[in-house]
Simulated assay, not measured.
Amino acid sequence: MDLGLKDKKVLITGGSKGIGKGIAKSFIEEGASVLIVARSQEGLAAAEKELAQVHTLQADLTNETERERVYAQALETFGGIDVLINNVGASNGGKIEETSMQQFEEAMALNYFSAVHFSKLVLPGMKTKGEGSIVNISSIFGRESGGKATYNNAKAAMISFTKALADEAIQDGIRVNSVAPGAILHPDGNWQKRLDENPDKINQFVQEQIPAGRFGTVEEIADVVTFMASDKASWISGASLNVDGGQSKMNM
Protein backbone atom coordinates (compact mmCIF):
# COMPACT_ATOMS: atom_id res chain seq x y z
CA MET A 1 0.00 0.00 0.00
CA ASP A 2 1.18 3.49 -0.85
CA LEU A 3 0.74 5.41 2.41
CA GLY A 4 1.46 8.80 0.86
CA LEU A 5 4.69 9.24 2.83
CA LYS A 6 6.99 9.90 -0.13
CA ASP A 7 9.36 12.81 0.58
CA LYS A 8 8.07 13.24 4.13
CA LYS A 9 10.77 14.29 6.59
CA VAL A 10 10.90 11.85 9.51
CA LEU A 11 12.83 12.09 12.79
CA ILE A 12 13.15 8.85 14.78
CA THR A 13 14.74 8.68 18.22
CA GLY A 14 16.42 5.45 19.27
CA GLY A 15 16.57 4.44 15.63
CA SER A 16 19.81 2.48 15.38
CA LYS A 17 18.46 -0.95 16.36
CA GLY A 18 15.39 -3.01 17.10
CA ILE A 19 11.98 -1.42 16.72
CA GLY A 20 13.43 2.00 15.89
CA LYS A 21 15.52 0.65 13.03
CA GLY A 22 12.56 -1.34 11.75
CA ILE A 23 10.44 1.82 11.74
CA ALA A 24 13.17 3.69 9.86
CA LYS A 25 13.32 0.93 7.25
CA SER A 26 9.55 1.02 6.77
CA PHE A 27 9.50 4.79 6.23
CA ILE A 28 12.43 4.59 3.80
CA GLU A 29 10.58 1.92 1.81
CA GLU A 30 7.65 4.36 1.59
CA GLY A 31 9.98 6.97 0.05
CA ALA A 32 10.41 9.17 3.12
CA SER A 33 13.60 10.94 4.15
CA VAL A 34 14.67 9.63 7.56
CA LEU A 35 16.99 10.90 10.30
CA ILE A 36 17.68 8.47 13.14
CA VAL A 37 19.21 9.47 16.46
CA ALA A 38 20.90 7.17 18.97
CA ARG A 39 23.57 7.18 21.66
CA SER A 40 25.81 4.51 20.13
CA GLN A 41 27.98 5.65 17.23
CA GLU A 42 28.72 2.01 16.50
CA GLY A 43 25.04 1.24 16.22
CA LEU A 44 24.46 4.20 13.94
CA ALA A 45 27.33 3.14 11.69
CA ALA A 46 25.80 -0.33 11.39
CA ALA A 47 22.39 1.19 10.59
CA GLU A 48 23.96 3.34 7.87
CA LYS A 49 25.26 0.21 6.16
CA GLU A 50 21.89 -1.51 6.36
CA LEU A 51 19.52 1.35 5.54
CA ALA A 52 19.99 3.06 2.22
CA GLN A 53 20.15 6.87 2.34
CA VAL A 54 19.38 7.12 6.06
CA HIS A 55 20.70 10.16 7.92
CA THR A 56 22.18 9.58 11.38
CA LEU A 57 23.06 11.67 14.40
CA GLN A 58 24.68 10.64 17.69
CA ALA A 59 23.31 12.14 20.92
CA ASP A 60 22.49 11.43 24.54
CA LEU A 61 18.76 12.05 24.57
CA THR A 62 18.52 12.21 28.35
CA ASN A 63 20.19 15.63 28.03
CA GLU A 64 18.03 18.66 27.20
CA THR A 65 20.84 20.54 25.45
CA GLU A 66 21.58 17.50 23.31
CA ARG A 67 17.92 17.25 22.28
CA GLU A 68 17.95 20.87 21.19
CA ARG A 69 21.12 20.24 19.18
CA VAL A 70 19.48 17.28 17.49
CA TYR A 71 16.45 19.30 16.47
CA ALA A 72 18.61 22.14 15.14
CA GLN A 73 20.57 19.62 13.07
CA ALA A 74 17.34 18.06 11.81
CA LEU A 75 16.16 21.47 10.62
CA GLU A 76 19.49 22.06 8.92
CA THR A 77 19.30 18.67 7.20
CA PHE A 78 15.63 18.62 6.21
CA GLY A 79 14.30 22.16 6.61
CA GLY A 80 11.47 20.84 8.78
CA ILE A 81 9.97 17.72 10.32
CA ASP A 82 6.71 16.18 9.06
CA VAL A 83 6.73 13.09 11.27
CA LEU A 84 8.24 12.58 14.72
CA ILE A 85 8.64 9.08 16.14
CA ASN A 86 9.52 9.13 19.85
CA ASN A 87 10.93 5.63 20.18
CA VAL A 88 14.02 5.90 22.41
CA GLY A 89 13.65 4.02 25.67
CA ALA A 90 15.14 1.52 28.06
CA SER A 91 14.34 -0.35 31.26
CA ASN A 92 16.32 -0.06 34.48
CA GLY A 93 16.08 -0.77 38.20
CA GLY A 94 14.26 -3.61 39.91
CA LYS A 95 11.93 -3.77 42.89
CA ILE A 96 10.83 -0.28 43.90
CA GLU A 97 12.43 -0.46 47.34
CA GLU A 98 15.74 -1.43 45.74
CA THR A 99 15.64 1.15 42.93
CA SER A 100 17.34 4.49 43.55
CA MET A 101 15.69 7.83 42.88
CA GLN A 102 18.41 8.46 40.31
CA GLN A 103 17.26 5.42 38.37
CA PHE A 104 13.66 6.65 38.42
CA GLU A 105 14.82 10.06 37.18
CA GLU A 106 16.96 8.51 34.45
CA ALA A 107 14.03 6.39 33.26
CA MET A 108 11.75 9.42 33.07
CA ALA A 109 14.39 11.48 31.26
CA LEU A 110 14.95 8.86 28.57
CA ASN A 111 11.50 7.32 28.14
CA TYR A 112 9.27 10.30 28.86
CA PHE A 113 10.92 13.73 28.97
CA SER A 114 12.69 13.13 25.66
CA ALA A 115 9.30 12.53 24.01
CA VAL A 116 7.77 15.61 25.63
CA HIS A 117 10.69 17.81 24.64
CA PHE A 118 10.93 16.67 21.02
CA SER A 119 7.16 17.05 20.65
CA LYS A 120 7.39 20.62 21.91
CA LEU A 121 10.29 21.30 19.55
CA VAL A 122 8.49 20.12 16.40
CA LEU A 123 5.10 21.67 17.18
CA PRO A 124 5.76 25.25 15.96
CA GLY A 125 6.95 24.08 12.54
CA MET A 126 4.08 21.64 12.17
CA LYS A 127 1.58 24.31 13.18
CA THR A 128 2.99 26.66 10.54
CA LYS A 129 2.49 23.98 7.87
CA GLY A 130 -0.93 23.05 9.26
CA GLU A 131 -0.09 19.36 9.37
CA GLY A 132 2.14 16.80 11.05
CA SER A 133 2.14 13.51 12.90
CA ILE A 134 3.73 12.41 16.16
CA VAL A 135 3.78 8.74 17.14
CA ASN A 136 5.02 7.78 20.59
CA ILE A 137 6.25 4.23 21.10
CA SER A 138 4.90 3.27 24.50
CA SER A 139 4.21 -0.26 25.78
CA ILE A 140 1.38 -2.45 26.94
CA PHE A 141 3.08 -2.07 30.34
CA GLY A 142 2.24 1.61 30.20
CA ARG A 143 -1.43 0.65 29.94
CA GLU A 144 -1.45 -1.98 32.70
CA SER A 145 0.81 -3.38 35.41
CA GLY A 146 3.88 -5.32 34.37
CA GLY A 147 7.57 -4.81 33.77
CA LYS A 148 9.86 -2.77 35.97
CA ALA A 149 8.23 0.14 37.80
CA THR A 150 10.57 2.75 36.31
CA TYR A 151 9.65 1.72 32.77
CA ASN A 152 5.97 1.16 33.54
CA ASN A 153 5.65 4.61 35.13
CA ALA A 154 7.41 6.41 32.29
CA LYS A 155 5.38 4.69 29.58
CA ALA A 156 2.13 5.37 31.45
CA ALA A 157 3.09 9.05 31.56
CA MET A 158 3.82 8.95 27.83
CA ILE A 159 0.37 7.57 27.06
CA SER A 160 -1.28 10.26 29.18
CA PHE A 161 0.82 12.93 27.49
CA THR A 162 -0.14 11.57 24.08
CA LYS A 163 -3.84 12.12 24.69
CA ALA A 164 -3.34 15.56 26.26
CA LEU A 165 -1.21 16.83 23.37
CA ALA A 166 -3.45 15.22 20.77
CA ASP A 167 -6.46 17.16 22.01
CA GLU A 168 -4.49 20.42 21.86
CA ALA A 169 -2.81 19.85 18.50
CA ILE A 170 -5.57 18.36 16.33
CA GLN A 171 -7.08 21.79 15.67
CA ASP A 172 -3.78 22.72 13.98
CA GLY A 173 -3.81 19.65 11.74
CA ILE A 174 -1.36 17.71 13.91
CA ARG A 175 -2.18 14.17 15.01
CA VAL A 176 -0.57 12.59 18.08
CA ASN A 177 -0.92 8.89 18.86
CA SER A 178 0.93 6.11 20.62
CA VAL A 179 1.62 2.51 19.69
CA ALA A 180 1.96 0.07 22.58
CA PRO A 181 3.98 -3.02 21.64
CA GLY A 182 3.85 -6.25 23.55
CA ALA A 183 6.77 -8.70 23.69
CA ILE A 184 8.83 -8.22 20.52
CA LEU A 185 11.73 -10.48 19.61
CA HIS A 186 14.78 -9.04 17.86
CA PRO A 187 18.54 -9.69 18.16
CA ASP A 188 19.28 -6.56 20.21
CA GLY A 189 16.38 -6.86 22.63
CA ASN A 190 15.90 -8.08 26.18
CA TRP A 191 13.58 -10.89 25.10
CA GLN A 192 16.31 -12.41 22.93
CA LYS A 193 18.73 -12.27 25.87
CA ARG A 194 16.19 -13.95 28.12
CA LEU A 195 15.45 -16.59 25.49
CA ASP A 196 19.15 -17.38 25.14
CA GLU A 197 19.58 -17.61 28.92
CA ASN A 198 16.54 -19.76 29.66
CA PRO A 199 14.71 -20.99 26.56
CA ASP A 200 12.36 -23.35 28.43
CA LYS A 201 11.14 -20.60 30.77
CA ILE A 202 10.65 -18.05 27.99
CA ASN A 203 8.92 -20.47 25.64
CA GLN A 204 6.56 -21.36 28.48
CA PHE A 205 5.91 -17.64 29.03
CA VAL A 206 5.03 -17.22 25.36
CA GLN A 207 2.58 -20.12 25.39
CA GLU A 208 0.92 -19.00 28.62
CA GLN A 209 0.92 -15.21 28.23
CA ILE A 210 0.67 -14.45 24.50
CA PRO A 211 -2.54 -15.81 22.93
CA ALA A 212 -0.99 -15.67 19.45
CA GLY A 213 1.56 -18.23 20.69
CA ARG A 214 4.67 -16.37 19.52
CA PHE A 215 6.66 -13.19 19.92
CA GLY A 216 5.86 -10.21 17.76
CA THR A 217 8.29 -8.95 15.13
CA VAL A 218 9.85 -5.56 14.57
CA GLU A 219 8.17 -5.40 11.17
CA GLU A 220 4.72 -5.85 12.72
CA ILE A 221 5.29 -2.79 14.90
CA ALA A 222 6.85 -0.76 12.08
CA ASP A 223 3.92 -1.41 9.73
CA VAL A 224 1.46 -0.06 12.29
CA VAL A 225 3.60 2.98 13.09
CA THR A 226 3.95 4.02 9.44
CA PHE A 227 0.21 3.62 8.97
CA MET A 228 -0.54 5.69 12.08
CA ALA A 229 1.78 8.44 10.83
CA SER A 230 0.13 8.55 7.40
CA ASP A 231 -2.98 10.29 6.17
CA LYS A 232 -4.61 6.86 5.89
CA ALA A 233 -5.06 7.24 9.68
CA SER A 234 -6.37 10.80 9.43
CA TRP A 235 -9.24 10.27 11.89
CA ILE A 236 -7.11 8.67 14.59
CA SER A 237 -5.99 11.12 17.27
CA GLY A 238 -5.02 10.56 20.90
CA ALA A 239 -5.17 6.78 20.59
CA SER A 240 -2.98 4.22 22.32
CA LEU A 241 -3.01 1.15 20.10
CA ASN A 242 -1.90 -2.25 21.43
CA VAL A 243 0.18 -4.28 18.97
CA ASP A 244 0.73 -7.40 21.01
CA GLY A 245 -0.85 -10.58 19.64
CA GLY A 246 -3.43 -10.41 22.42
CA GLN A 247 -0.87 -10.25 25.25
CA SER A 248 -2.48 -7.34 27.08
CA LYS A 249 -4.99 -8.27 29.78
CA MET A 250 -7.05 -5.08 29.32
CA ASN A 251 -10.52 -5.07 27.77
CA MET A 252 -9.76 -1.79 25.96
Rank of each mutant, 00 (worst) to 15 (best):
A183Y: 08
I159D: 09
S240A: 14
I202T: 12
N136Q: 07
S230M: 14
S160N: 15
F227E: 00
V176Y: 08
A154I: 03
E197K: 15
F141I: 09
K193F: 01
G147N: 03
A212F: 15
H186K: 11
S145Q: 15
S145M: 13
V224Q: 11
A233H: 01
A166Y: 01
S139Y: 08
F215H: 04
P199M: 04
S248N: 11
G142E: 03
Q207F: 03
I134D: 01
D244S: 13
Q204V: 03
I184A: 10
I159H: 03
Q207C: 11
I210N: 01
A154V: 03
K148Y: 15
I221P: 08
T226K: 06
A149W: 12
I174P: 09
V224T: 11
Q207T: 10
T217W: 11
I184N: 13
R175Y: 00
N242S: 02
N198E: 08
V206S: 10
R143P: 00
G189P: 04
G216M: 06
A157K: 00
Q171M: 12
P211H: 04
H186E: 06
S138M: 05
M228Q: 05
A229Y: 06
I210T: 10
V179T: 01
G147P: 07
D231A: 10
V243L: 07
V218G: 00
K155C: 05
G246D: 14
Q192N: 03
R175K: 08
G173V: 12
F227N: 07
I184P: 03
D172R: 14
V225W: 10
V243E: 06
T162Q: 02
E208V: 06
Q209V: 09
D231H: 08
T162H: 08
V224F: 12
N136S: 03
K148V: 13
A156W: 09
Q207H: 12
D244F: 03
I184C: 02
G246E: 13
K155L: 02
P211L: 06
A180M: 13
G246M: 11
S160H: 14
G142W: 13
S178H: 06
I221T: 10
G142L: 05
W191D: 07
S133R: 09
R194E: 04
S237A: 15
E220M: 08
N242G: 13
P199Y: 06
V135M: 01
V225M: 12
Q207K: 15
G213E: 02
E219T: 15
I137T: 04
S133F: 03
I137V: 08
E144G: 01
I210V: 08
G147Q: 05
S230T: 12
D172L: 09
G245A: 01
S133C: 06
N203C: 05
D188P: 04
K249P: 14
Y151F: 14
G142P: 06
G146H: 09
K163Q: 05
